[in-house]
Structure formats: structure tokens, C-alpha cells
Amino acid sequence: MVNITGLQLKNPTMLAAGIMGTTGASLIRMAREGAGAVVTKSIGPQPKEGHSNPSMVKLDCGYLNAMGLPNPSYEAFLPELEKAKDKAGVPVIASIFGGNMEEFRMVAEGLTPGKPDAFELNVSCPHAMGYGASVGTDPEMVKAVTSAVCEVADIPVWVKLTPNVTDIVAIGKAAQAGGADAVVAINTVRGMSIDIHSGYPVLGNRFGGLSGEAVRPVAVKCVYDLYANLDIPIIGVGGISTWQHAVEMIMAGASAVQIGSMVYEGLNVFSDISEGIHRFLEERGHKKTKDITGIAHERF
């Protein structure tokens, strides 16, 4: 068991936000596939259709996406959350977004009747004007929205950080100062791809966020730096596709990991990775994930 901000996870792998999280049924399916916890699609104050397609393409080095925060609004999502809570059998974390403190608070309060186990604040989506990273690149805003949600929530509040800043530690500290119980790092790295036949940017939004293989070293460094400077737990995410990647992220300082784009390769990724971590810990004589969290910091 992994304890993270009071949530008991049967293993340290979670489904990342924005992946297979639009409906209660898909969240339940991911839990059955072995995820230790599931994070919903980011939910906002109003229904949003998102950007036009293509909204996600596979590259040689990872994935590029610009979904545009499509969501049915917190009101329409509430029954989906209730269904996931009823049947998933693992903690369900509601990812929420807004353009300001009032909107964040409104969405958090609106989803509270669905009894999520924690909130994850999306202040890091790199391609939605006025939302996500528009909030998450400003430490004052991050602190303000975090404390706004903490005031109305009696469940843990996690803040998902963007790597598209000069100093992610400053943003992490702002979240901590606002009352965050944990930070999640990282969201996607801004990126773009152009169709050389026509000159058109490939994504409907022109640019988007890079995930997968290419961003893993970026994520490891962010988690490493956050661990050195924060007092709250860090959940590591970015390019994890094997148990070895997960162990690396944990050694950098993560208490648990999230897995996103990798579901492209197969839904068994959660059970494969959690079993691999378990075997690794056992072979090394460790009892829990916590025993190796941040050990890279003790090596120099």
C-alpha cells in the first residue's frame, strides 16, 4: 500500500489526467486494468468542445496533443464521477480547471457531492487560452487558486505543474504556500509539428504539448528539484512506459507516478509497471515505495 496525502493506493501507479477519463465507465475500466488510482479528465465551469482535430499525433519521440480542455462542465460530469466512485474500487481524483479563483472554487464545490478522494488543480495545460498554464506560470495566481480551493475542500488538494517556466520550484513553492497537499509534475512540454508537404501546423490548435519518451528526462529533473525544495509529496509524471522508468522517477523524489500517453501501447501498462516496481523493491529488500523515494539525493 502507498499512502499519498492520506489516500491509500494499492500500488503507486495512477492514470494521469486527460487520458481515458471523460466518463465514469472508462475510469472504472482503467481501475480494473490495475491503476492504483485514477484521475479524471480536467473539468471546468462550462461545457467546452476543445480544439479542432488533429488533436493528438504520435511522433517518433513521443506524442503531441492539443485537446483544448474538452469537458461537459462540472454539472454534467457529476454523475460520471459518482459512477466512478461507486465502482472503480480505487481512489478517484477530480482534475479541475478554471480561469480564476472563483471558477476553481465553483468547480470544486460543484464536484464535491460526487465525493472525489482529492482534487488535482490543472494549472498547467499548455494550449488553452486563459486556462491552465496561463494560471500556472504565475506564482501569485497559483498560490491564490490553491488556497481558494483549499478553503472550500475538505479533501487533499494536489497541484499539477507546468514545466514551461524558468523555475518550476518557485511555482511548486507557491502551491505549497497556498496549502497544496502534494504537487504533480509535470504536464506536457510545449511543442509543435509542421506538415512539410503543405506547411500547415499539424495540430488543429497549431501547437500543443509534448508527452512520452522525449519528456522523461525533463520530468525527472523537475521532480528531483521539487523534492529538494518542497516539504509536500511529489507525484511524478512524464514519459513513463516501463517499471524501470517509474523506479527512476521515484528515486528522483516521487511518492507515486502517473501514466498517460503510454496507454496507447496497451491498457495492461498499470499492472505491468506496478508488478515491476514491486519485484524491484522485494529483490532489494525494501518494504515500500517510500524506501526508495528520493534516494538519488543521498548519492552525492
Binding site: K41, N53, M56, S261
Partner: peptide, 20 residues
């Protein structure tokens, strides 16, 4: 309605199985 088209985003999941 498909968004990603490659089985990742979950926009086309069916109730109650979650099949994409």
C-alpha cells in the same frame, strides 16, 4: 465523435464497458 482517434483520450468510450 473521435478526438485522438488512437485510443488514448477516451472521448469515444461507450457506456458501460468503457470500450473505445
Amino acid at each position: 465523435y473521435f478526438k485522438c482517434g488512437i485510443g488514448v483520450c477516451g472521448a469515444c468510450c461507450m457506456d458501460d464497458t468503457g470500450l473505445r
